[in-house]
Design a protein around this nucleic acid. Structure first.
Lengths: 158, 158
DNA sequence: GACTCACTACTCGGATACCTTCTGTCCGAGTTACTAAGG
DNA sequence: CCTTAGTAACTCGGACAGAAGGTATCCGAGTAGTGAGTC
C-alpha cells in the first residue's frame, strides 16, 4: 500500500502551474523541484493523457492547465498518475475451496469487499473535496502571498 | 497504490477463525481457501507478530484469535499485514531547488501533505469503524446463520 | 495398573529465489520561432 | 520595407534498462501427543 512517488511531483506541478499563464516546459518544472527531468516528464504525460494539462509543442512549448484550479481536485491528479484502480481487489476466494459459497449466493460483493470498498470511497471522497485552488490558498497562508507569483515569474522568465 | 493481496486472505482467515475454538493450522486455512499454504503462513505470521492471533505449536497446534471479534478492527488486520506506513510520504521537495522554501517557514507540513494525510486518516477511520464481528454478522445475513459454524467444524474436524 | 521416558509426527518461524511493478533514462517525431535572402 | 523559404533549436511522446518490493517456496527449530518399557 504505497502511493507512487510521482504523485507528489504532479501535485506540486499543478500548484505552481496556476502561477504561470504561459506554457512551462517539463524540464523547467524539474529544475524548480530539483528532480529527474525525464521521470517528471513521464508524470506530466500522464496528466496530459488524463486531460488535466494541455501540452504545447515547439520552441516556446510546455504544459498549461486546461481548467481553472478550482475545477481540479486532488483525486483527479492522483487517479491520472497512479491509475483509477481501487486499492483492494476482491478475488472471490469465498467461491473457491471445498466449502465454496455457491455462486447463486454471491449476488452481492462479499462483506470484506464491501467494507474495503467503503474505506476506499471515503479516501476518494476526501481527495475529491480538495481542489488545487484550495492548495494555492493554503500555500499563500503558509508562505505569504508573494511566494507563488515569484515562482510563476521564475518559471516563465529566467 | 495497490494493497497487498495477502490482506484479503488474512481478513477471511480472521472471520473463519471466529467459528473455531480450537487452534487451526495455517495449512488447513489454506486448504479451505484454496491458496498457497506457504504464502498464507507468511500472512499468519504477520498477524501473530501484531498480536492479533496466538500461535500454538505442536501436533494439535495452529492459530487462535487473541481477542474477541468485536475487539479486532479491519485497520488492525490491514496494518498487521501491509504495514502501518502511510500511503503518501512527503519528501519535502518544497525545500529543494533554486526557489526552495526556507526551513524556518516549514514548521507545518506542506498543504499537499496535509490534504493527503487527511484522506489517509479518513481511510483509516473507515477501516477502524468495522470490526471482525461486524463482518461475521454480514456473512450470516448473506449466507445464512449455518454457514460459519459449518466452516468451523470443518476446520477443526475433518 | 500407574508412572516415566524416548520417539514420532506435526506445528510455527525465518531465510531463500522468482517475478511483477515502479523508478529512471534515452532517443526520435513534430512544431515553433528565428534568420536571411529575394522581390 | 515586406514577403517567403529555409534552418535550427526546442518541445513532447513513447520505447528501453535497472532496482525495489511483493509473491511464492523451502527447510530447520520447537512442541504436544503417543507408545513402549519399567516399577
Amino acid at each position: 500500500m504505497k502511493l507512487s512517488g510521482g504523485v507528489e511531483w504532479a501535485l506540486h506541478c499543478c500548484v505552481v502551474l496556476t502561477a504561470a499563464s504561459e506554457p512551462v516546459p517539463a524540464a523547467r518544472l524539474a529544475q524548480l523541484h530539483d528532480v529527474s527531468p525525464s521521470y517528471l516528464a513521464k508524470q506530466m504525460q500522464a496528466l496530459s493523457r488524463a486531460g488535466l494539462v494541455r501540452s504545447v509543442q515547439g520552441k516556446t512549448g510546455g504544459y498549461v492547465l486546461t481548467r481553472k484550479a478550482s475545477d481540479i481536485t486532488l483525486l483527479d491528479v492522483v487517479q491520472a498518475v497512479d491509475g483509477a484502480a481501487p486499492a483492494f481487489v476482491c478475488t472471490e476466494i469465498r467461491q473457491r475451496g471445498p466449502l465454496a459459497t455457491p455462486p447463486e449466493k454471491c449476488v452481492k460483493p462479499c462483506p470484506i469487499a464491501r467494507a474495503m470498498g467503503a474505506a476506499d470511497a471515503a479516501w476518494r471522497a476526501s481527495l475529491a473535496g480538495v481542489t488545487i485552488a484550495d492548495l494555492v490558498t493554503s500555500v499563500e497562508t503558509d508562505s505569504g502571498p508573494d511566494a507563488l507569483p515569484g515562482i510563476g515569474t521564475w518559471l516563465t522568465g529566467g
